[in-house]
């Protein structure tokens, strides 16, 4: 029964996977290559060129690039922190308690995620102007909840649902308070899901473009918006643009590598449940 696929099939599958990997990775590789090319060699070389760090020097030391990076970190990081603080209890409530319209509320939260941003951004722009939170960290962190919170709540909810409620009962009978149970017994059990959901939420927030473009832009400039500045109206410094993109991709990659262990398991487990 369990002989596995035939050799021919195996080879075919691997070839297809390699083709797909090239297709998916090539733009990234191309971006890295570009970042080491000088403007002079930009259009007349392919893979053979004299690598230079000039682009990196210009972007990192002569432009306010580090500040954009910091803005992105602040906004995305705090957005995720807020999502975790609010989302985990919300997920717990949705998983454990029965209340009226529970599924409607859960769906409503999810629907924030699939409404096109452009649809809501104009009214939000007006509201933000009135509330005077336009172009502030607070404003962006708030609006980023539309992106990070639904994901977090839905993944973590699945995890809570997988924990049998008797474990909580057992801990109650053992003499623990609800808070102790929550931190001692539940948080360790949802950790894989929480970590992976938080990371994904961070990446989504980090990559967000529409909201920061329209709801910020002067005081607060996340990297996604700021990169466009390297595309001048008259000249396009592709090398510098590539550097900006490469560096901006780094934090997400670093985080993902750090918690890789949790990531695959975290998302394949519990999260899949409806």
């Amino acid at each position: 029964m369990k002989s596995g696929p035939k050799l021919g099939t195996k080879i075919l599958l691997n070839v297809l996977l390699i083709l797909y990997a090239i297709f998916a990775l090539f733009p990234l590789i191309w971006m890295v290559i570009l970042s080491f090319k000088s403007d002079a060699q930009m259009y007349n070389t392919m893979f053979v060129f004299t690598p230079t760090l000039e682009n990196y020097r210009i972007v990192l030391f002569t432009t306010p690039y580090p500040r954009y990076l910091l803005d992105s970190l602040i906004v995305s990081g705090l957005a995720v922190v807020v999502s975790v603080i609010v989302g985990v209890p919300a997920a717990y409530a949705l998983a454990r308690y029965n209340f009226r319209k529970k599924e409607d509320i859960a769906f409503q939260i999810l629907s924030f995620k699939f409404a096109p941003e452009i649809l809501v951004v104009l009214p939000l722009f007006m509201i933000y102007q009135k509330l005077r939170i336009y172009d502030t960290y607070f404003g962006l962190i708030w609006v980023y909840q539309l992106i990070s919170m639904p994901l977090l709540i839905w993944v973590v909810r699945g995890y809570f649902e997988d924990i049998s409620v008797e474990i909580e009962y057992a801990a109650q009978v053992d003499g623990y308070t609800w808070w102790q149970i929550f931190f001692k017994n539940l948080i360790p059990l949802i950790k894989p899901g929480l970590v992976s959901a938080a990371l994904l939420a961070f990446i989504f927030a980090w990559n967000e473009f529409t909201f920061p473009l329209l709801l910020a832009g002067t005081n607060v400039q996340p990297i996604t918006v700021a990169i466009t500045k390297f595309l001048g109206t008259d000249t396009a410094h592709y090398g510098q643009l590539a550097v900006a993109a490469v560096v901006s991709a780094l934090p997400a990659i670093i985080f993902a590598l750090c918690i890789q262990k949790h990531l695959v398991r975290g998302l394949s487990f519990g999260a899949v449940k409806g």
């Binding site: 049998s164 008797e166 474990i167 009962y169 057992a170 801990a171 009978v173 017994n185 360790p188 059990l189």
Partner: peptide, 12 residues
């Protein structure tokens, strides 16, 4: 002190 039918052991 209670013994639960599905054991309810703390997995971690």
């Amino acid at each position: 002190a209670m013994v639960f039918e599905n054991y309810a052991l703390y997995p971690q």
